[in-house]
C-alpha cells in the first residue's frame, strides 16, 4: 500500500514535470511530419538502398558491355561466314540464296527453294526457333552439309520488324511474304500458315534498311 502511494507520488511529479515547456527542435520536427519526411534512421536505409541500386546498375552495365563485346565477336564471325558463303555458293550447289520459310508460333520453318536445290539428293530443311525476342537460333532437321552454311549464317542474327529501322546497323537479309500467285509449289499453297520468302542480301547495307518494308515483313539484320 505504501509502495503504491510512493509510486503515485513519483508518477504525479514526473507527469507535472513533463508538462513544462522544453527546448527541442519542435518546428523542424513539425516540418518533417508535414512533408511526410521519414525519420532520420530511415535515411540510413535509404542510403544503403541507393548504394545497392547503384552497385546493381554498375553490375548490369558491366554485363551489358561484356554481352555487347561477345555479340560483336559473333557478328564479325558471322560476316566472315557470309563472305565465305558468297564465295562458295557455286560449290554448294545453291545458285541463289533465296529460300522460302514459314512463320509459326514456334519460329520460322525454312525450306530451300526446290528448284535451286534440285541437284541435291536431299531436301535441305531447317527449323529456326526463336530463343529470345528478335533473335533466332536454328536447329537442323537435316544433316546435309550444304545446309550447314546457311544455318550458321542464320544463327545469332536478329530478326527485326519495321519500324525499328533506326536500330539497324547492318541489313543481312530480308524475310518477306511470298506472293501466292508466284508460288510454284501448289502443295505449299494449300497450307494455312502464311508463306514467306527469305532473301539474304549479297551486299550488306549499312545504316538504313535498303527496302521499304511492310508491317508483315521482317529483315534479318545486325542490330546496334
Amino acid at each position: 500500500m505504501e509502495h503504491k502511494s510512493t509510486d503515485e507520488t513519483i508518477r504525479k511529479k514526473i507527469q507535472l514535470l513533463e508538462r513544462q515547456p522544453v527546448k527541442w527542435k519542435k518546428e523542424e520536427v513539425w516540418e518533417r511530419i508535414e512533408h511526410n519526411h521519414k525519420p532520420r534512421s530511415a535515411w540510413y536505409y535509404h542510403v544503403a538502398a541507393s548504394l545497392a541500386l547503384l552497385l546493381s546498375a554498375l553490375f548490369t552495365y558491366n554485363n551489358y558491355k561484356h554481352y555487347r563485346h561477345g555479340m560483336h565477336l559473333k557478328i564479325s564471325s558471322l560476316q566472315q561466314r557470309l563472305g565465305a558463303f558468297d564465295t562458295n555458293k557455286n560449290q554448294t550447289g545453291i545458285n541463289h540464296i533465296d529460300s522460302s520459310c514459314y512463320l509459326s508460333d514456334q519460329g520460322i520453318s525454312l525450306n530451300h527453294n526446290k528448284q535451286k536445290l534440285k541437284r541435291q539428293s536431299k531436301k535441305a530443311s531447317h527449323k529456326i526457333m526463336f530463343d529470345a525476342p528478335g533473335v533466332i537460333a536454328s536447329s537442323d532437321d537435316d544433316t546435309g552439309a550444304r545446309s550447314d552454311t546457311l544455318t550458321t549464317v542464320l544463327q545469332e542474327v536478329a530478326i527485326v520488324q519495321p519500324p525499328r529501322q533506326r536500330e539497324v546497323k547492318m541489313v543481312i537479309g530480308v524475310i518477306l511474304p511470298e506472293d501466292s500467285a508466284n508460288r510454284n509449289d501448289t502443295r505449299r499453297a494449300t497450307k494455312t500458315s502464311p508463306r514467306f520468302k527469305l532473301k539474304l542480301l549479297k551486299e550488306h547495307h549499312e545504316g538504313v534498311t535498303p527496302l521499304r518494308l511492310q508491317d508483315s515483313e521482317f529483315i534479318i539484320a545486325r542490330i546496334k
Partner: peptide
C-alpha cells in the same frame, strides 16, 4: 533527443 524526435515524427504521423 534525435531518437525521441524520430519517435515523435512516427507517432504523430500515426495520430494524424
Amino acid at each position: 533527443n534525435d531518437d525521441a524526435e524520430d519517435i515523435i515524427i512516427i507517432a504523430f504521423s500515426k495520430v494524424f
